[in-house]
Design a protein around this nucleic acid. Structure first.
Lengths: 349, 349
DNA sequence: CTGAAAGCGCTTACAG
DNA sequence: CTGAAAGCGCTTACAG
């Protein structure tokens, strides 16, 4: 159906070995020969069959991107960044969603895939040491995005610092009764912090830790009722706010694990007659596309460039085989808009 | 590094041909033999090298998904649906963004890719007849998503009907001065409708046509100033609304090509002191995750299941080689929330 | 600088 | 039901 390397070789009157070298830009090809080969290839619209190249070259030329949910804003942006870097190259990008796989353990069990990929970008975590090892044993290069893990290359914002910044913004405004809407383990009981310390790092645990640290820095003792576990979505934020509103003594401010949570929470608060920021201040993390349009104060990050950065780390690692573990920290910045202000007298104890 | 088919053959005391047949579930393998082979494969953690399978089997086992922007809500949902269907199969899913490729023509010029893919799902359009032909000539199965094209399988909502429904909702409330925020060609001049008729179908042109049809059905003559070309994003909607507000005689209602546009527009209107829906009614299309939380009235669709449906059409086509051109219409429904109401006296001429 | 040949790990007629 | 063999289209030592 399409031209093969033999067709090109015949047309250029050289051997297939020479065609292979010439087209891939390898050294030891006479310039005139190279021109002839390139011309023949163009005329025949020839392009190497990737399956054959991969088999002969013993390289998969594929990388996977594993995210919790391809449909979520953050992960879609991350994918966009990764795709932008890989587009045009000859390395395939394979997106995978934990939602359709059923957890990272199940994903790793799918060896049929894992064995045949050169690299894998895993977003968010948590990923256990044993799982990192499984990936390494398969000979697959691993890069994390969104969270950093010891001994594994990755790119992330400083999640804890980002949340601390949000907390300090609120504390600076005078808030002390601050709620957290995010990935808190359901059964944290009194051992909130210690449990998280032992768990593998994840975006959720890091941000929660930042929240606790931020409170501690302000001399505020965290109140368990103000720590609300939430799914990272608009709906999750709405649910969480309903629970907060049911409290005898609601918070004067909330920090959300991400902007969708913050926005879902904001609407519920307003619908309940609570002014934002008059009666309740809200800070998110992301700077989601919609956040400017709803006036959300947030810690802004750029997931597209994070995806691009993670992809570059992986590509470098694959091409140069550099053994060093690079950890890149992506920048964030506080964007103050219209959902934070000084606390009203009402909510303060 | 990993076990090969030879290792399995040796361990099961059969030939590699038998291993190949047994593991792929082909007929003409004795049950006892098959069990032995399957057992050996499991013990060795064997899985066929896809590059070798593809080369020998003369199948690419890859499909592409081409969308305008992987980061946009609609397309991220679409990808989620496609991935859900393909996950676990042995067919690779390759996402491509026109944003990083630079237009569909440039994408098709990237023959290196196109030649080595079994199928391609193209979202939104427009895709010209000549482009459809190029894909066909490359032996690649084509499926459209979001818009339907003659002679090409696809899955979409009835875009025109969806917008007509939005218009009739507004007309039913008493609106006559209705604006359109969406993909209008910049230079439509007086020839609005005729230009779009000759263009290849796209989500933008179909929806705009539905808007004009909806007005016509209500006996309303479209006013060029109320037809505002817009990028499909929150920012685009905000920009468009600024232009609308600058009009001497603003509309009493707007229909947006998609929810992000509607929401961006809504905030600008409110910030300008225009009550929604008191002073301005707004309808979107999508039912974006955030729409319920901002109370947006919209024409709801389900892009995840659209992606899944398109993927299934492609897979069926690839596996069964059915020659019939299936066109599936996905359902939509009007969801009335809090951004539409009867027009105020003010805006009516 | 170039070519002949082996080999990558499978699948698929073809015999039996 | 099973196996020996050819072949898929490349890449890579190895000679020259």
């Amino acid at each position: 159906v399409s031209a093969t390397i033999e067709d090109v070789a015949r047309r250029a009157s050289v051997s297939v070995a020479t065609v292979s070298r010439a087209l891939r830009g390898l050294p030891n090809v006479a310039p005139s020969t190279r021109d002839r080969v390139v011309g023949a290839a163009r005329e025949l619209q020839y392009v190497a069959d990737p399956a054959a190249s991969r088999l002969a070259g013993r390289r998969a030329l594929r990388v996977g991107l594993l995210v919790p949910d391809l449909g979520s804003w953050y992960h879609a942006q991350l994918l966009t960044g990764v795709e932008g870097v890989l587009a045009g190259g000859d390395c395939d990008l394979l997106p995978f969603s934990l939602a359709s796989t059923g957890g990272i353990e199940r994903f790793l069990d799918a060896w049929p895939f894992l064995k045949r990929v050169d690299g894998l970008i895993v977003a968010d975590g948590p990923i256990e040491d044993a799982q990192v090892e499984r990936v390494a044993d398969a000979g697959v290069a691993l890069v994390t995005a969104g969270v950093l893990i010891d001994e594994t290359p990755g790119l992330a914002i400083d999640n804890a610092a980002a949340v601390r910044r949000a907390v300090s913004h609120l504390v600076g405004l005078g808030h002390r009764r601050i709620a957290w809407l995010g990935g808190v383990r359901p059964a944290f009981g009194g051992r909130v912090a210690s449990e998280l310390v032992t768990a593998s790092p994840s975006v959720g645990s890091e941000r929660f830790r930042g929240f606790l640290d931020g409170l501690a820095a302000a001399g505020v003792v965290p109140e368990p009722r103000l720590l609300v576990p939430t799914e990272a979505s608009f709906d999750g934020g709405a649910d969480a706010m309903h629970r907060l509103l049911a409290l005898a003594e609601p918070p004067t401010a909330v920090v959300a694990h991400c902007d969708p949570i913050a926005i879902g929470a904001m609407q519920v608060a307003r619908d309940a007659g609570l002014a934002v920021p008059g009666g309740l201040s809200i800070v998110g993390i992301d700077d989601h596309d919609v956040s400017a349009h709803v006036g959300l104060t947030t810690i802004a990050q750029d997931p597209v460039s994070q995806g691009a950065g993670a992809a570059r780390i992986l590509v470098d690692y694959l091409t140069e085989g550099s053994a060093e573990v690079v950890h890149e920290i992506a920048p964030v910045r506080l964007v103050v808009r219209r959902t934070t202000g000084i606390p009203s007298a009402r909510g303060v104890p």
